[in-house]
Design a protein around this nucleic acid. Structure first.
Ligand code: SF4
Ligand code: SF4
Lengths: 156, 156
DNA sequence: TGAAAGAGGATATAATTTGTCCTGTTTATG
DNA sequence: CATAAACAGGACAAATTATATCCTCTTTCA
């Protein structure tokens, strides 16, 4: 029900790269230090992000990583999926064949719908909406204004 | 990111009990057989459902389990929570103190909002909306268009 | 050529999930 | 009262997954 640490690391990593000037490669070590990620673990994560065409790697001396696409063209959903695989709350929403009851199950459609809801939400969050919001949540494009369960959302 | 098998079993179990006439206790064995759940595993699950006041247990000869409340007063969220604990996509949405970065993290508010979305959705699905829909999925009662019995489920 | 940097496989460790078993307690019933 | 049916709850075993490190290989710049 919870994304893995790897996926959270991946998001941090993309967020960090998104804050860098385009065209400047960043080494694994720098990302790892800045974002508090174990370096050799991050190396693995970047391999997956690379396969998903979210980042580009540059090998050799003076190498590193760069975002492969514009920040506005990378969203939370695909970063998570590139690491954790399909997003869903129950497995049957990913593949109904893994459960023999799915055809007669009245709960199954709930998971399908909820999955769509979550995916829609996550895919709408692109990284241009996440960068440079530090310390200013509430005044930004992401509609977080208002209250959630009586608690004012504020990041300081 | 995915509910445990236990939680799915719990939902099946409540669904089964919800289909029984009120006041009739059902033994673990019968629920287990009907819903395809390992019997001794289900016993554990029922203990948790009992602690959460979702079911009542009746001990001794002719004992078994009954729903403790009306089907319309039991929803998916609380059944899941009684088994898996708090529902969220990222741990920091449950307790921001587990991540030292949460105060300066621009992604954190996203998880808070998404969690509220999911919880609202799941708590709107009560078991009276799930019973007796077997075999009629896709006809009208539960549609994938976001309505259940004509009531809009989405939480904006 | 050689040092810097990523690629990728193998492996280790820990945590969680799934499930069983055994003993004890409650209770209807003859 | 005795007994068997049924749940309660702790201990524990097995499997799976998550987290993380290490080592060797390849690429590339200077
Ligand atoms: S029982 Fe229903 S909800 Fe649970 S996994 Fe099977 S299909 Fe999905
Ligand atoms: S980094 Fe941000 S999103 Fe990830 S856990 Fe910490 S607060 Fe939550």
């Amino acid at each position: 029900m919870i994304i893995t640490r790897q996926a959270d690391y991946a998001i941090r990593c993309v967020l960090f790269l998104a804050s860098k000037p385009v065209g400047i490669a960043t080494m694994i070590g720098e990302i790892a230090d800045s974002m508090g990620i174990p370096k050799s673990f991050l190396a693995k994560i970047l391999q997956r992000l690379s396969k998903a065409e979210i980042v580009s790697s540059i090998r050799g001396v003076r190498g590193g990583f760069v975002l492969k696409r514009d920040v506005s063209d990378i969203n939370l959903l695909e970063v998570i999926q590139s690491i954790d695989g399909p997003v869903a709350i129950n497995r049957c929403a990913i593949d109904k064949h893994i459960c023999g009851r799915s055809c007669n199950c009245s709960v199954h459609p709930i998971w399908i719908k909820l999955r769509a809801l979550i995916q829609d939400y996550l895919s709408a969050v692109t990284f241009d909406k996440l960068v440079d919001t530090k310390g200013s949540i509430g005044t930004q494009k992401i509609s977080l204004e208002g209250e959630i369960y009586g608690q004012r959302l504020s990041v300081r």
